[in-house]
Computed example of a mutant assay.
Amino acid sequence: MARIFSRAAAVAALAAITMGLAACSSGSPAAPGGESTSGSSPDTSATTAATSEAPASSAPDATELTTTPGTLTIATGNPAYSPWVEDDKPESKQGFEAAVAYAVAEKLGFADADVSWVRTTFDEAIAPGPKAWDLNIQQFSITEEREKAVDFSSGYYTTAQAVLTYEGSPLAGATTLAQLKQGKLGAMVGTTSLNALNEQIAPATPASVFNSNADTAQALKNKQVDAIVVDLPTALYLAAVEIDGGKIIGQLADASGGDQFGFVLPKGSKLTAPVSAAVDALAADGTLAALEKQWLSESISVPVLS
Protein backbone atom coordinates (compact mmCIF):
# COMPACT_ATOMS: atom_id res chain seq x y z
CA MET A 1 0.00 0.00 0.00
CA ALA A 2 1.20 3.53 -0.70
CA ARG A 3 1.77 5.75 2.29
CA ILE A 4 -1.32 7.92 2.32
CA PHE A 5 -1.81 7.98 6.10
CA SER A 6 -0.30 11.47 6.36
CA ARG A 7 -3.72 12.87 5.66
CA ALA A 8 -4.84 11.79 9.07
CA ALA A 9 -3.40 12.79 12.41
CA ALA A 10 -2.44 10.52 15.30
CA VAL A 11 -2.21 10.48 19.05
CA ALA A 12 0.39 12.37 21.10
CA ALA A 13 3.85 10.89 21.44
CA LEU A 14 4.58 8.30 24.10
CA ALA A 15 6.25 9.70 27.23
CA ALA A 16 8.94 7.38 28.61
CA ILE A 17 11.88 7.33 30.98
CA THR A 18 15.45 6.26 30.50
CA MET A 19 16.53 2.91 31.85
CA GLY A 20 20.25 2.38 31.13
CA LEU A 21 22.06 -0.90 31.38
CA ALA A 22 24.31 -0.45 34.41
CA ALA A 23 28.01 -0.95 34.02
CA CYS A 24 29.85 -1.77 37.22
CA SER A 25 33.49 -2.32 38.23
CA SER A 26 35.23 -3.06 41.50
CA GLY A 27 38.50 -2.24 43.20
CA SER A 28 40.79 0.78 43.02
CA PRO A 29 42.93 1.19 39.89
CA ALA A 30 46.69 0.98 40.22
CA ALA A 31 48.58 4.26 39.79
CA PRO A 32 50.74 4.72 36.65
CA GLY A 33 54.04 2.88 36.79
CA GLY A 34 52.59 0.19 39.07
CA GLU A 35 52.72 2.42 42.16
CA SER A 36 50.06 1.85 44.76
CA THR A 37 47.55 4.65 45.31
CA SER A 38 48.44 4.75 49.01
CA GLY A 39 52.02 5.80 48.25
CA SER A 40 53.61 2.66 49.77
CA SER A 41 56.15 0.46 48.01
CA PRO A 42 54.72 -1.43 45.02
CA ASP A 43 53.52 -5.00 45.60
CA THR A 44 54.49 -6.89 42.46
CA SER A 45 52.31 -9.91 43.19
CA ALA A 46 49.24 -7.76 43.86
CA THR A 47 49.83 -5.75 40.69
CA THR A 48 50.17 -8.95 38.65
CA ALA A 49 46.96 -10.36 40.11
CA ALA A 50 45.06 -7.13 39.43
CA THR A 51 46.15 -6.94 35.80
CA SER A 52 45.17 -10.55 35.21
CA GLU A 53 41.57 -9.99 36.31
CA ALA A 54 39.02 -9.72 33.50
CA PRO A 55 37.07 -6.42 33.45
CA ALA A 56 33.50 -6.53 34.69
CA SER A 57 30.95 -6.90 31.87
CA SER A 58 28.48 -4.07 31.50
CA ALA A 59 25.78 -6.20 29.88
CA PRO A 60 25.34 -9.47 28.00
CA ASP A 61 25.95 -9.32 24.26
CA ALA A 62 22.47 -9.29 22.76
CA THR A 63 23.78 -10.68 19.48
CA GLU A 64 24.58 -13.94 21.31
CA LEU A 65 21.17 -14.21 23.02
CA THR A 66 19.03 -14.68 19.92
CA THR A 67 17.47 -17.84 18.51
CA THR A 68 20.12 -17.76 15.80
CA PRO A 69 23.31 -16.15 17.16
CA GLY A 70 24.17 -13.03 15.19
CA THR A 71 20.68 -12.76 13.65
CA LEU A 72 17.69 -10.94 15.16
CA THR A 73 14.51 -12.69 14.03
CA ILE A 74 11.50 -10.37 14.21
CA ALA A 75 7.93 -11.48 13.51
CA THR A 76 5.00 -9.38 12.35
CA GLY A 77 1.51 -9.95 10.98
CA ASN A 78 0.48 -11.37 7.63
CA PRO A 79 -0.40 -9.02 6.12
CA ALA A 80 1.16 -6.10 7.96
CA TYR A 81 -0.93 -2.95 7.59
CA SER A 82 0.04 0.65 6.88
CA PRO A 83 0.84 2.89 8.73
CA TRP A 84 2.62 0.27 10.84
CA VAL A 85 4.35 -1.38 7.85
CA GLU A 86 4.20 0.09 4.37
CA ASP A 87 3.38 -2.12 1.37
CA ASP A 88 3.53 -5.20 3.65
CA LYS A 89 7.37 -5.07 3.47
CA PRO A 90 8.89 -4.67 6.96
CA GLU A 91 12.38 -5.17 5.55
CA SER A 92 12.02 -1.80 3.79
CA LYS A 93 12.07 -0.03 7.21
CA GLN A 94 9.05 1.93 5.98
CA GLY A 95 6.16 2.38 8.42
CA PHE A 96 6.12 3.15 12.13
CA GLU A 97 6.62 -0.35 13.53
CA ALA A 98 9.12 -1.36 10.86
CA ALA A 99 11.18 1.73 11.63
CA VAL A 100 10.95 1.16 15.40
CA ALA A 101 12.04 -2.45 14.97
CA TYR A 102 15.20 -1.47 13.09
CA ALA A 103 15.96 1.29 15.58
CA VAL A 104 15.77 -1.25 18.42
CA ALA A 105 17.89 -3.70 16.44
CA GLU A 106 20.58 -1.05 16.05
CA LYS A 107 20.55 -0.32 19.79
CA LEU A 108 21.03 -4.05 20.41
CA GLY A 109 24.07 -4.15 18.13
CA PHE A 110 22.54 -5.62 14.97
CA ALA A 111 23.15 -4.25 11.48
CA ASP A 112 20.16 -4.02 9.13
CA ALA A 113 21.45 -7.07 7.25
CA ASP A 114 21.36 -9.08 10.49
CA VAL A 115 17.58 -8.64 10.87
CA SER A 116 15.39 -11.46 9.56
CA TRP A 117 11.60 -11.17 9.26
CA VAL A 118 8.99 -13.91 9.66
CA ARG A 119 5.19 -13.85 9.84
CA THR A 120 2.78 -15.05 12.51
CA THR A 121 -0.85 -14.68 13.41
CA PHE A 122 -1.74 -12.41 16.31
CA ASP A 123 -3.08 -15.26 18.44
CA GLU A 124 -0.15 -17.63 18.06
CA ALA A 125 2.27 -14.86 19.00
CA ILE A 126 0.72 -14.40 22.45
CA ALA A 127 -0.01 -18.09 23.08
CA PRO A 128 2.10 -19.98 25.66
CA GLY A 129 5.01 -22.06 24.44
CA PRO A 130 8.33 -21.80 22.59
CA LYS A 131 8.72 -19.39 19.68
CA ALA A 132 10.74 -19.53 16.48
CA TRP A 133 11.49 -15.80 16.68
CA ASP A 134 13.09 -13.33 19.08
CA LEU A 135 10.64 -10.40 18.92
CA ASN A 136 7.13 -9.92 17.58
CA ILE A 137 5.66 -6.53 16.70
CA GLN A 138 2.08 -6.07 15.49
CA GLN A 139 0.29 -3.62 17.79
CA PHE A 140 0.27 -5.85 20.85
CA SER A 141 -1.30 -4.06 23.81
CA ILE A 142 0.47 -4.84 27.07
CA THR A 143 -1.97 -6.59 29.44
CA GLU A 144 -1.59 -8.54 32.66
CA GLU A 145 -3.40 -11.52 31.16
CA ARG A 146 -1.01 -11.75 28.21
CA GLU A 147 2.00 -11.35 30.49
CA LYS A 148 1.18 -14.74 31.97
CA ALA A 149 2.16 -16.37 28.66
CA VAL A 150 4.73 -14.03 27.10
CA ASP A 151 7.11 -11.21 27.96
CA PHE A 152 6.61 -7.61 26.87
CA SER A 153 9.14 -4.87 26.32
CA SER A 154 8.57 -1.33 27.53
CA GLY A 155 5.83 0.38 25.56
CA TYR A 156 6.88 2.08 22.33
CA TYR A 157 3.51 3.71 21.58
CA THR A 158 0.27 4.62 23.35
CA THR A 159 -3.05 4.63 21.52
CA ALA A 160 -6.82 4.60 22.00
CA GLN A 161 -9.53 2.42 20.47
CA ALA A 162 -11.82 3.93 17.84
CA VAL A 163 -15.14 3.08 16.21
CA LEU A 164 -15.13 3.16 12.40
CA THR A 165 -18.16 3.06 10.09
CA TYR A 166 -19.05 4.18 6.56
CA GLU A 167 -21.39 6.75 5.03
CA GLY A 168 -24.91 5.35 4.85
CA SER A 169 -24.34 2.86 7.66
CA PRO A 170 -27.14 2.51 10.25
CA LEU A 171 -24.60 3.91 12.72
CA ALA A 172 -23.32 6.78 10.56
CA GLY A 173 -25.16 9.32 12.69
CA ALA A 174 -24.30 7.78 16.06
CA THR A 175 -22.64 10.06 18.58
CA THR A 176 -23.07 8.14 21.85
CA LEU A 177 -22.33 4.71 23.29
CA ALA A 178 -26.06 4.15 23.79
CA GLN A 179 -26.66 4.54 20.05
CA LEU A 180 -23.80 2.18 19.23
CA LYS A 181 -25.33 -0.55 21.43
CA GLN A 182 -28.08 -1.03 18.84
CA GLY A 183 -25.74 -1.68 15.94
CA LYS A 184 -23.95 -4.73 14.58
CA LEU A 185 -20.30 -4.33 15.55
CA GLY A 186 -17.12 -6.29 14.84
CA ALA A 187 -13.49 -6.54 15.96
CA MET A 188 -10.48 -8.82 15.69
CA VAL A 189 -10.25 -11.88 17.93
CA GLY A 190 -8.00 -11.72 20.99
CA THR A 191 -7.51 -7.95 20.87
CA THR A 192 -8.07 -5.12 23.32
CA SER A 193 -10.30 -3.67 20.58
CA LEU A 194 -12.70 -6.58 21.10
CA ASN A 195 -12.46 -6.19 24.87
CA ALA A 196 -13.24 -2.47 24.61
CA LEU A 197 -16.17 -3.18 22.30
CA ASN A 198 -17.71 -5.69 24.71
CA GLU A 199 -16.97 -3.82 27.92
CA GLN A 200 -17.56 -0.20 26.96
CA ILE A 201 -20.19 -0.48 24.24
CA ALA A 202 -21.77 -3.81 25.32
CA PRO A 203 -23.84 -4.18 22.13
CA ALA A 204 -27.31 -5.74 22.25
CA THR A 205 -26.27 -8.08 19.42
CA PRO A 206 -23.11 -10.12 20.15
CA ALA A 207 -20.09 -8.73 18.35
CA SER A 208 -18.82 -10.37 15.17
CA VAL A 209 -15.27 -11.63 15.64
CA PHE A 210 -12.68 -11.85 12.85
CA ASN A 211 -9.28 -13.51 12.55
CA SER A 212 -7.31 -10.44 11.44
CA ASN A 213 -7.54 -6.71 10.92
CA ALA A 214 -7.74 -7.39 7.19
CA ASP A 215 -10.80 -9.61 7.68
CA THR A 216 -12.34 -7.03 10.03
CA ALA A 217 -11.90 -4.25 7.48
CA GLN A 218 -13.27 -6.47 4.70
CA ALA A 219 -16.39 -7.20 6.72
CA LEU A 220 -17.02 -3.47 7.00
CA LYS A 221 -16.40 -3.02 3.28
CA ASN A 222 -18.91 -5.80 2.58
CA LYS A 223 -21.38 -4.19 5.02
CA GLN A 224 -21.54 -7.36 7.08
CA VAL A 225 -21.23 -5.12 10.12
CA ASP A 226 -22.32 -1.55 10.78
CA ALA A 227 -19.05 -0.52 12.43
CA ILE A 228 -15.78 -1.97 13.69
CA VAL A 229 -13.47 -1.21 16.61
CA VAL A 230 -9.74 -0.92 15.89
CA ASP A 231 -6.84 1.11 17.28
CA LEU A 232 -7.05 4.77 16.37
CA PRO A 233 -4.15 5.00 13.86
CA THR A 234 -5.53 1.99 11.98
CA ALA A 235 -8.99 3.56 11.99
CA LEU A 236 -7.59 6.79 10.57
CA TYR A 237 -5.77 4.89 7.82
CA LEU A 238 -8.77 2.71 6.93
CA ALA A 239 -11.07 5.72 6.82
CA ALA A 240 -8.72 7.63 4.53
CA VAL A 241 -7.62 4.83 2.23
CA GLU A 242 -9.44 1.51 2.49
CA ILE A 243 -13.09 2.15 3.30
CA ASP A 244 -15.18 4.08 0.76
CA GLY A 245 -16.85 6.88 2.69
CA GLY A 246 -15.04 5.77 5.84
CA LYS A 247 -16.04 7.70 8.94
CA ILE A 248 -14.64 7.58 12.47
CA ILE A 249 -17.54 7.90 14.91
CA GLY A 250 -15.24 8.54 17.85
CA GLN A 251 -12.75 7.03 20.25
CA LEU A 252 -13.45 5.05 23.38
CA ALA A 253 -12.48 6.55 26.72
CA ASP A 254 -9.65 4.85 28.61
CA ALA A 255 -8.98 5.82 32.22
CA SER A 256 -5.50 4.31 32.01
CA GLY A 257 -4.45 6.80 29.36
CA GLY A 258 -4.66 4.41 26.42
CA ASP A 259 -3.24 1.08 25.33
CA GLN A 260 0.54 0.72 25.36
CA PHE A 261 2.01 -1.28 22.52
CA GLY A 262 5.09 -3.37 23.29
CA PHE A 263 7.28 -5.97 21.61
CA VAL A 264 6.26 -9.53 22.49
CA LEU A 265 9.08 -11.89 23.49
CA PRO A 266 9.04 -15.54 24.57
CA LYS A 267 8.32 -15.95 28.27
CA GLY A 268 11.53 -15.58 30.27
CA SER A 269 13.56 -14.35 27.30
CA LYS A 270 17.04 -13.06 28.11
CA LEU A 271 16.39 -10.34 25.53
CA THR A 272 13.47 -8.79 27.42
CA ALA A 273 15.62 -6.46 29.55
CA PRO A 274 17.94 -5.38 26.67
CA VAL A 275 14.98 -4.74 24.36
CA SER A 276 13.18 -2.71 27.05
CA ALA A 277 16.36 -0.71 27.64
CA ALA A 278 16.63 -0.06 23.90
CA VAL A 279 13.00 1.12 23.70
CA ASP A 280 13.48 3.36 26.73
CA ALA A 281 16.63 4.85 25.21
CA LEU A 282 14.79 5.57 21.94
CA ALA A 283 12.05 7.31 23.92
CA ALA A 284 14.58 9.35 25.89
CA ASP A 285 16.60 10.52 22.87
CA GLY A 286 13.49 11.55 20.89
CA THR A 287 13.66 8.81 18.25
CA LEU A 288 10.22 7.37 19.01
CA ALA A 289 8.63 10.83 18.94
CA ALA A 290 10.31 11.58 15.61
CA LEU A 291 9.15 8.29 14.08
CA GLU A 292 5.63 8.87 15.37
CA LYS A 293 5.62 12.32 13.80
CA GLN A 294 6.91 10.89 10.50
CA TRP A 295 4.52 7.97 10.20
CA LEU A 296 1.51 8.76 12.37
CA SER A 297 1.56 12.61 12.40
CA GLU A 298 1.26 14.98 15.29
CA SER A 299 -2.28 15.66 16.47
CA ILE A 300 -5.84 14.41 16.12
CA SER A 301 -9.36 15.62 16.63
CA VAL A 302 -11.53 12.59 17.27
CA PRO A 303 -14.28 12.96 19.90
CA VAL A 304 -14.36 10.70 22.94
CA LEU A 305 -17.63 8.77 23.09
CA SER A 306 -19.76 8.73 26.22
Results as ranks from 00 to 15, higher is better:
10 A>W: 13
12 A>Q: 10
14 L>G: 03
22 A>M: 10
29 P>L: 14
36 S>Y: 02
36 S>K: 10
38 S>N: 15
43 D>M: 08
45 S>H: 06
47 T>R: 13
47 T>A: 15
47 T>F: 12
48 T>S: 06
55 P>A: 08
60 P>D: 15
69 P>C: 01
80 A>G: 13
91 E>P: 12
94 Q>L: 12
94 Q>N: 07
95 G>P: 10
104 V>H: 08
111 A>I: 06
114 D>S: 14
117 W>G: 06
121 T>H: 11
126 I>D: 06
126 I>Y: 04
129 G>P: 00
131 K>C: 04
138 Q>D: 02
142 I>M: 06
142 I>C: 07
145 E>D: 09
145 E>I: 00
146 R>K: 03
154 S>H: 09
154 S>I: 01
155 G>S: 14
168 G>E: 04
169 S>N: 07
179 Q>M: 11
180 L>R: 08
193 S>V: 10
193 S>Q: 13
200 Q>S: 07
206 P>R: 03
208 S>F: 12
208 S>G: 04
214 A>S: 13
214 A>M: 11
216 T>H: 15
216 T>C: 15
216 T>F: 15
219 A>L: 09
220 L>S: 03
225 V>Q: 01
225 V>S: 04
229 V>A: 09
245 G>P: 01
251 Q>F: 01
258 G>I: 02
263 F>W: 00
270 K>N: 14
271 L>Y: 01
272 T>A: 09
272 T>R: 04
276 S>T: 13
280 D>R: 09
284 A>W: 03
284 A>K: 06
285 D>I: 02
287 T>D: 09
298 E>A: 04
298 E>W: 07
300 I>R: 11
305 L>K: 07
306 S>M: 08
306 S>K: 14
